[in-house]
């Protein structure tokens, strides 16, 4: 799905991302962990061609993300509010994103119907623009919009951080289910090692831009992360 070679990005001499080789396959759920400044968000932005790498390349299904646009049709992401068009109502935003991916209004309505529980009645038909929602609810809108297009590659930056506990658990279930049903490739970053070890089939641990651990998800990964993150 994604293959990365000699990818480097630095800001004023400080390395933000430095990945020699990395292959990510369809059907994998990647948990990206690391303390603040490890380069997780920069890595995501590089994947989406939102920043220019100093060197190296990222291939998505064999095509360079920097020079082709096909990846946009099967990739969906939510990194921060910079992905939300804040003067639209949530419905308008969903229809807009749906339309860009050839989904009719009815398709979008059907989809939203199945995610009613996730919204908890706080988002649809509220007569508010996205900018007037709370941060947590904006996050929900962003995540749902990313899922809406049924992407083959889904990128979520710290999805658990801004959600309430119920929604966090729902999201954990959703990610597991999507990965099992659709062989979707999902990359999530998180500070919540509990959730991340539960959903991920593979964990990448970043430190100062480098991937220093590449391990299988599950209980063992949880213990390894506890060991790494504990205060020394």
């Amino acid at each position: 799905m994604i293959s990365i070679k000699k990818l480097q990005k630095s800001y004023k001499g400080i390395t933000a991302v430095d990945i020699d080789v990395l292959e990510i396959h369809a059907g994998e759920v990647i948990g990206l962990v690391g303390n603040n400044g490890a380069g997780k968000t920069t890595f995501f932005r590089l994947l989406l061609d939102l920043i220019r790498a100093n060197s190296g390349e990222i291939l998505s299904k064999g095509n360079l993300v920097t020079t082709t646009e096909e990846w946009k049709s099967y990739t969906a992401a939510y990194i921060d509010e910079g992905f939300l068009i804040d003067y639209l109502t949530p419905e308008e935003y969903f229809y807009f994103v749906g339309k860009l991916n050839q989904l009719s209004k009815a398709d979008v309505d059907d989809f939203l119907h199945t995610y009613q529980a996730f919204f908890d009645d706080a988002i649809l038909k509220k007569g508010k623009y996205i900018r007037d929602f709370s941060k947590g609810n904006q996050f929900k809108i962003g995540i749902i919009a990313a899922l809406l297009t049924n992407p083959e590659l889904l990128i979520l930056d710290e999805p658990f951080a801004n959600l309430d506990p119920t929604t966090q658990l729902r999201l954990v279930d959703m990610i597991k289910k999507m990965a099992a049903d659709n062989r979707m490739c999902i990359i999530v970053s998180s500070h919540d090692i509990n959730h991340v070890s539960e959903v991920s089939s593979r964990i990448l641990l970043m430190e100062k831009g480098k991937i220093i651990k590449d391990i299988a998800g599950g209980e063992a990964a949880y213990d390894e992360m506890v060991e790494y993150f504990k205060v020394k």
Partner: peptide, 16 residues
């Protein structure tokens, strides 16, 4: 005008 959500504009499925 779209600067607050330009990250989004550039990653949606939009042909430039």
């Amino acid at each position: 005008w779209q600067s607050s959500h330009f990250d989004g504009m550039m990653s949606y499925n939009i042909n430039m």
